[in-house]
Design a protein around this nucleic acid. Structure first.
Lengths: 245, 245
DNA sequence: CGAAATTTTGAACCGTTTCAACGGACGTGG
DNA sequence: CCACGTCCGTTGAAACGGTTCAAAATTTCG
């Protein structure tokens, strides 16, 4: 959803899986790179496999690297001095991390579940960027897309009720799964209640209670604590109060 | 602060005022355009002068134009079907509007006070972008910067108390004024309490009460309802609970 | 199977909102 | 020049949604 760039809704998505060992090819971003560029990119990339809760980037550290998520889910978060946390986005396979960083990372990024990522040296990436102008156009597009997502999330955080937040969130996650949002569509919630709460600006108790309420209302079911099923897509959309409501 | 790109903290800021009639030159963005590019840009630009509350862009309308604010303040907002509003950012002289839009504007943009803007046709802008690769690099930088600001604001909306929100907001606005944040520094608040509330995710009453509380605490004074003075920068920063606290 | 972690549920509490009224600034018109 | 109406900001009191604190239920994992 956000912090950076996403390949997810790119018409050339197959490029994500096109690369076996590492997702260097993924950063070609919808064909912005030719073969030579791709090879150069692969040369500066390395694949990492990380366990749950591993840190990819720590808020305030020098932003030396740039990541592309190959599999798993990553949380991007910011902390207040007293420990309050706001998760500004979840990253899924195909998403980029670290584009928006300056000298230091303005956020932390950690694995929600075991992940594999493709890591690039920022310095090398900059050089490549300068050499391949078409890459920038693609990245600018994605940055704009992420900014839009961020604005949508500000609307959620600033103005929506707990039920509306959960409905919006479930819709987002469901839309990501295969088949999108449809009656009976089941999808996994890889993140904990605490992570959902910190993403939606709520406490774990409110998240739990609100999910229970949605379930009681027949809008969703919760096969397990870490998965959900949409039972009434129309009502869920109306509850979310979003885009087309 | 946000929706799009800003020239404000650009090392070449003088380029903003360098252009008399219209701010076409401003979009040169820190020297990304040569003279020829500048002329091409000026050709597709027009200057508009608008009264307070005039609409620059309406959420859902085709995103035909792109703006550069020459003077005044613009609010960028999103609405929920029932009328609840979230202002996702204020734009000041030098800021860009509309970069992050796709086919349609994902937000509305209105003048907070009388403004002058420089308007570009989006189609012509796209052509220019394709022809001048260096422009994209500069715009990508700014988009990243805006994304960071958006993430900071999500932290505010999701996790900060009313006092912390107001303190953060005052610090932001004060930092924009000449001299930045310093004891005795006075600055104007061109936006209404309602606009501040919709930006901070609060009601006008809470904004008013909280400002009064900050005043009583000796942290700020309010020379008029639309201006403020920082009396205790250190305490204000601590209250904001931000970056270095 | 048992310990630890996560999720759910309950009850009291609290910060912010809501509803209501008042005060002051501004602009229009008498 | 002052009376009047409107808009905006402030203040007060009550209500409410979500938080906090506490504990039980469930799941996870060694």
């Amino acid at each position: 959803m956000l912090a950076q760039l996403s390949l997810r809704d790119c018409p050339h998505v197959e490029s994500v899986s096109a690369c076996g060992q590492c997702s260097a090819r993924a950063i070609s971003v919808c064909g912005a790179l030719n073969e030579a560029g791709l090879d150069r990119l692969a040369a500066i990339a390395e694949t990492l496999t990380l366990p749950a809760d591993a840190t990819l980037a720590y808020e305030g550290d020098p932003a030396d690297h740039l990541f592309n998520i190959t599999s798993g889910v990553v949380r991007v978060s910011k902390l207040l001095p007293d420990g309050r946390r706001q998760i500004v986005g979840f990253l899924f396979a195909g998403d980029f991390l670290g584009m928006a960083a300056g000298e230091v990372y303005p956020f932390s990024a950690e694995a929600v579940e075991p992940v594999t990522v493709c890591r690039f040296k920022r310095s090398a990436y900059r050089t490549l960027l300068a050499e391949v102008p078409s890459l920038e156009a693609a990245l600018l597009d994605r940055a704009s897309h992420d900014l839009q997502a961020a604005q949508e999330h500000m609307l959620l955080l600033g103005r929506k009720s707990a039920s509306e937040r959960l409905a919006s969130f479930l819709l987002d996650v469901a839309a990501r799964g295969e088949g999108g949002v449809r009656k009976g569509g089941e999808f996994s919630l890889p993140m904990s209640r605490s992570e959902i709460g910190d993403y939606l600006g709520l406490t774990i108790e409110t998240v739990s209670r609100t999910l229970t309420k949605l379930k009681s209302a027949g809008v969703i079911t919760l096969p397990t604590a870490r998965s959900a099923r949409v039972e009434d897509p129309e009502r869920l959309r109306r509850l979310a109060g979003g885009r087309e409501a």
